[in-house]
């Protein structure tokens, strides 16, 4: 059983907070609205418990952007939000830059949401990497729609993972989403090493 001591937990929460602050700032620029973020929730558990942690979302109809990362830390980052809000998000992104007929937004749905996910997930990952002073390589974003089981890879189901969950919400648009980072045991050990190094670098 993996546990974090109080200082490690506090440090990881703060680093995720910084990452999600960057992600929220990026999303806010894209949708031109205030984005609220929750305090990060950190847990070690099997992935099938995620469903219990997505309050406010119908897990039968989700949209997701998933991006793998490797290098000094390995895992997957996911942006999850309600499937029926996806076109609204695309409209918010594109309507101020381009003239697009309302009926044509669906043509851009997959690509626009992939790019939104790319920006949000990379903002979070980059802030974590910058704070802990390491480099991660991120893969290209993959957009999927469906129920939660469909969105998870089969290999996800059995392993214990570190689940870092933050909810993002655009209150005026009633849009809610979650950012989740999934890391396996090996990567968790590496992350804890990086956190300890970071803590030890703080002048006392």
């Amino acid at each position: 059983m993996i546990t974090l001591n109080e200082l490690q937990h506090d440090t990881l929460t703060e680093i995720i907070n910084i990452g999600m602050g960057s992600a929220a700032a990026a999303m806010s620029i894209m949708v031109r609205d205030e984005v609220n973020i929750s305090v990060p929730d950190i847990s070690f558990s099997s992935i099938d418990t995620i469903q219990d942690n997505l309050s406010g979302l119908d897990t039968n109809e989700l949209a997701s952007v998933r991006q793998g990362f490797d290098g000094e830390l390995m895992g997957d980052a996911m942006l999850l939000f309600q499937g029926d809000k996806s076109l609204e998000i695309v409209r918010l992104l594109l309507s101020n830059t381009m003239t697009i007929d309302n009926n044509d937004f669906s043509d851009f749905e997959q690509e626009a949401l992939s790019e939104i996910g790319n920006i949000i997930l990379n903002a979070g990952l980059s802030a974590i990497a910058n704070t802990l002073k390491f480099t991660v390589n991120s893969s290209l974003p993959i957009y999927k729609q469906g129920n939660l089981n469909k969105l998870m890879a089969p290999s996800d189901q059995t392993q214990t993972v570190l689940i870092l969950r933050v909810d993002l919400s655009l209150e005026t648009k009633q849009i809610k989403g979650y950012v989740i980072y999934l890391m396996d045991i090996q990567s968790i050990d590496l992350l804890i090493e990086h956190i300890d190094r970071y803590i030890n670098s703080i002048p006392s």
């Binding site: 920006i119 990379n122 903002a123 990952l125 980059s126 990497a129 991120s138």
Partner: peptide
């Protein structure tokens, strides 16, 4: 022009 805003 990138989403990858890592210092590295």
């Amino acid at each position: 022009l990138t989403a990858n805003i890592q210092d590295s």
